[in-house]
Write a protein that binds this DNA or RNA. Sequence first.
DNA 1: AACGTAACGGTTGAG
DNA 2: AGCTCAACCGTTACG
Length: 341
Amino acid sequence: MQMDQTYGEVNQLGGVFVNGRPLPNAIRIRIVELAQLGIRPCDISRQLRVSHGCVSKILARYNETGSILPGAIGGSKPRVTTPNVVKSIRDYKQGDPGIFAWEIRDRLLADGVCDKYNVPSVSSISRILRNKIGNLSQPSQYDSKPSPPQISYNPVYSYPYPNAMSPTGSKLGSPPGVSVSLSRAWPSVHTVSNILGIRAFMDPSAIAGTESYQPKMEDWTGVNRPSFPSVHGVNGIEKPPIENDIKYTQASSNLSGYVPACAYSATNQYGVYGGHAGNYGHWQSQGASLTHPNSGSMIQSPNLHSAISFKNTPREAVGRKSPVSKHQHESLSAVHGLSES
DNA sequence: AACGTAACGGTTGAG
DNA sequence: AGCTCAACCGTTACG
């Protein structure tokens, strides 16, 4: 409770963290950036004041999945509420707005959409009606939920839901994987690839196996949990599409056209992460790009908040340990101006 | 000294 | 509307 900004703890290295919560994306990105510059993990750990265990984990995950994002926290896998079921429910409701939940349940069984073992409970159906099928005004749109129209978010995680994924069972179905880059205050040159990159990754065909679930992700792009009136919404799905725009303009105008010392940006969430700006000023990135070996595309992101990696990262993929040797480097040496410590 | 990882105390969110 | 509980978090400590 109370888990508001202001609180955070300090680790042995003097870094601030919020127990139970992921490190801000800005820092995660920074970690990967530095690693790509050839900085040793132990040094990254010290410089960013993030435990080496964490650095290790984030880098390992990045190497394996191409994503810098934290895993999907909370919730549970859909057990009965499959996309197909939701769709049927929507259809029933549409056909008969006055239909009762129990009637829907019966129909699901009758129509063979579900069998008695996986048919949703009446209360589940009610919730589905409430949460996912609020207004039937816009029939189409794939599935439900107020999903962001276009670019906005980064569908990163999605459940490895068997039916929704490729038949081969291969995870990481389609999205090209990705990478990101951060550009802070520097002039373009990259803007084009930026756009292209985003487009590429937003390719709808890449995102959803089928209509499927809204990808679930821990979204820290919105980060300013508490204190930002204009930027609400804590987790991707409930965020209004416009937010993205807001963030953009914010970053470049109001807030901090220039993010102070790297990772601990002023725009960061949780006031707590705001500290330390001065500690490693010389590590400031001029903006480097993260390029993941697996990924063909590279994305230049105009601001930290949206600098994220995109690749489908099924839950199951995360826990596994299959180190992928990576030998990519200096794809980014082009851009950065830092090298000394 | 560096780093992989289990244990730990924590939060989250779909069911 | 509230609870559960399995998912994830980062830190710490150990090897």
